[in-house]
């Protein structure tokens, strides 16, 4: 049985003012991976490349252990996507989507789709353009799920949703992975969603993967040391990842807080959140 549902290897793509540099990570089967990074860090470009929406990248993408060139249709039968700003023409209705998708996916399940519409309180016969932003997102999610995909690729699926709707959507994602054949790649800048349900975190900054590991390891091992300048000066450069100088203290990101504690005996080592990680990695200095 295959271990990784998705393998991204050495993805490289140059634009005039931006570059994806050798992006690599693996998504194991049955897991949820949170893909985090600033706006413009390369999340969407990576996802578009994985989906073949961008074609002229170098590097290799394997989905279900298959290559696009030889198995495109097969792979895409089993992927569901929610993409930022890409969807059905807005003069169509949910009913139209049902009719259309029945002619596109072998496994399209009208019953399942209708159940989602009911669960989400979405109207069948209203044009998409009349829906609120939240309802629009929910319709996209329902559409992505109704052909029983094995892999969900979601670009900012919770953006624009209020907390209640976000919670509903998170429930649906967790329902989805009750089947251990199913996996999710989920890009977002709302890290609280991920702090709960993600199994893996992949962090991209300025077109480069900074880290990709299990969330439990990450939150368990990394820590934030708060100290004064004189203490900070005692820390050797190799013992921290990044630091940020605030008004009355230094915030120092360390990779292994237990080791650090042993070595330096500092009092205040805080638990790190994903937000802290992002801020320090992006704004911090070395």
């Amino acid at each position: 049985m295959m271990k990784n549902i998705l393998e991204v290897n050495g993805l490289t793509k140059k634009y005039d003012n931006f570059e994806l540099k050798n992006v690599s990570f693996n998504l194991p089967r049955g897991m949820i991976m949170g893909f985090i990074g600033e706006n413009g860090a390369g999340k969407t470009t990576t996802i578009k490349s994985i989906l073949d929406i961008i074609k002229d990248y170098s590097g290799k993408v394997k989905i279900f252990n298959l290559d696009y060139r030889s198995h495109e249709a097969e792979i895409k039968e089993e992927i569901g996507v929610v993409l930022d700003d890409m969807f059905f023409p807005e003069i169509l209705t949910a009913q139209d989507i049902d009719n259309v998708m029945r002619g596109i996916y072998k496994n399209w399940d009208s019953n399942l789709f209708n159940n989602y519409l009911k669960d989400f309180d979405l109207p069948r016969n209203k044009q998409i353009k009349t829906l609120s932003k939240g309802m629009h997102k929910k319709l996209e999610i329902a559409t992505a799920l109704a052909h029983h995909p094995k892999l969900l690729i979601l670009d900012e699926p919770t953006s624009g949703l209020d907390p209640v709707a976000r919670s509903e959507v998170i429930d649906i994602f967790q329902d989805f992975i009750q089947n251990d054949d199913c996996s999710i790649l989920f890009s977002t800048h709302i890290t609280t969603d991920l702090e709960q349900i993600a199994d893996y975190i992949t962090f991209i900054n300025d077109g480069e993967i900074v880290l990709s590991k299990t969330k439990d390891e990450l939150l368990d091992e990394y820590g934030i040391v708060k100290c004064h300048e004189e203490e900070f000066n005692k820390i050797s450069k190799k013992d921290y990842v990044k630091y940020k100088k605030n008004k009355c203290e230094y915030e120092v990101l360390v990779e292994n807080k237990r080791e650090f504690k042993k070595k330096y005996k500092f009092e205040v080592i805080d638990k790190m959140t994903l937000d802290d990680l992002m801020v320090l990695m992006i704004k911090g200095e070395k």
Binding site: I53, E74, K76, E77, I79, L83, Y105
Partner: peptide, 8 residues
Amino acid sequence: AYVVTFPN
């Protein structure tokens, strides 16, 4: 762009 994610 969205249709690229569908089979063929």
